[in-house]
Write a protein that binds this DNA or RNA. Structure first.
Lengths: 250, 250
DNA sequence: TAGTGGTCTAGACCACCGA
DNA sequence: CGGTGGTCTAGACCACTAC
């Protein structure tokens, strides 16, 4: 099943011509450095002027590339201080990919408890969603998550083992994506989520300490890195009696 | 919307506590014209150069304001042709606010059938979500929606009657938001959706021609206009056996 | 060919931050 | 204070569209 990243109406043909604006080339060069972890998360980049000299373009062109990277949440710019590689382990960034909120109060940080963690051969879903060969291995995590102390999510997380060496024997922190970035040099750029309403089967109900047939929200997420490779597949089952999934359309 | 924040400073030249960039003032001026429907949807704006002369700023400053309006989906710019007021009745814009997709195929246009349409006093939810006084009136629509010919949504739509004079006696098209724009001068800028999984009660099940207790997706949407006023509340009950709600996180 | 938006440059000045 | 990003300008040239 082909997964459409965006509206089906955006299938309009591209010019096909090999014209690439200068600022776009600068964007790609800087993106490559970020992907190669030349600059670490939190680190300050050279100033606009220095980059301009180094790359042999005007400061305005560098600026346009930096602004684009900032719009893509890869950089953070602060007037008077400098340009920094975005850190994905602060509170703000956690909620970038976590859209569940309590109905009434503001959300505290979600917490987690790992149930199982194994390195194994991928099943059919994992092969398809992570674009894997049959001979590849995956690391698969099952865990429960809590919001404001209340059990609300059971999820299965699968990643290609080759991209995460030693992952299966690690202590798993609450914020996975910062671990991906700091330990494996993998930055999650975007994630595509597909939501459905389901009735819990017996196993799911037991995990979530509720009764079979309860309505729950299923979130099927594929996360991709800076080079648009799928690097994580996550299937979350969420109880939404006291929570909701928040989506802002603009 | 990021650009219509709660900046307390006014457009008055230079105040010492708040600083308002020139391009931001231009943005606001142009936004006002869009809100006042000085330029109609689909219409071409004057060129950058003409606007620059008229407003007494440089072309680059106009450009920055136009780019910001384009980023907010209010304008569409086409190289070699001009800058146009975004039309919200073409296929692209429909899917901007409609995130349900068939699991397997690409989505055709959704269709609708109105069940009831009344003008009445608001209930407590409507008063709260639309920020209404007890004496106000609302227009309330119940309808069913179909995707690829299949019944999948039952929804209730409520709008303040004062903003939509004569609405209750109109023929209702499939794409409501284009009607809002063309007949009432109201442009939907953003919408906030809250999703939950629910079990259908008897009435909902009957409407959707399925059985009581079926799991379904409830979408609670508040849509706001260019001035950030809530102008529509919509509660949709969606069957997701063959559909999913698509959400792209970046 | 004329007119549009898109890119690129160079330089001036402003607002903000930290030492 | 010096250094950073943010704004603003003026002008040149490029790519695209319509006629």
């Amino acid at each position: 099943m082909e997964r459409t990243g965006d509206d089906p109406t955006t299938a309009a043909g591209r010019s096909e011509i090999g014209y690439r604006p200068l600022y776009r080339q600068v964007y790609d060069k800087l993106l490559k450095r970020l992907a190669d972890a030349v600059w670490q998360p939190g680190q300050m980049l050279p100033s606009e002027g220095q980059l301009a000299v180094e790359l042999g373009v005007s400061q305005g062109t560098v600026r346009k590339a930096l602004d684009a990277l900032t719009a893509d949440s890869l950089l953070i710019r602060r007037q008077g201080r400098g340009t920094f590689v975005a850190e994905h382990d602060d509170q703000q960034s956690v909620f970038r990919f976590f859209k569940l909120r309590p109905d009434r109060a503001g959300a505290g940080m979600p917490t987690s408890r790992v149930i199982t963690m194994t390195e194994t051969s991928p099943n059919a879903d994992e092969r398809e969603n992570l674009d894997l060969l049959r001979t590849a291995q995956v690391v698969r995590i099952e865990r429960l998550r809590y919001l404001d102390g209340r059990l609300c999510i059971a999820e299965t997380i699968s990643v290609p083992a080759v991209l995460f060496p030693g992952f299966a024997r690690m202590e798993i922190p609450n914020t996975l994506y910062s671990l991906y970035a700091t330990r494996f040099g993998i930055t999650i750029a975007t994630a595509n989520e597909r939501l459905k309403a389901i009735s819990l089967d017996a196993r799911q109900a037991q995990l979530l300490e509720t009764s079979t047939g309860t309505a729950a929200l299923e979130i099927d997420r594929i996360a991709v890195d800076l080079e648009d490779r799928p690097v994580e597949w996550r299937l979350s089952i969420c109880l939404t009696q006291l929570l909701h999934y928040n989506s802002l359309l603009r």
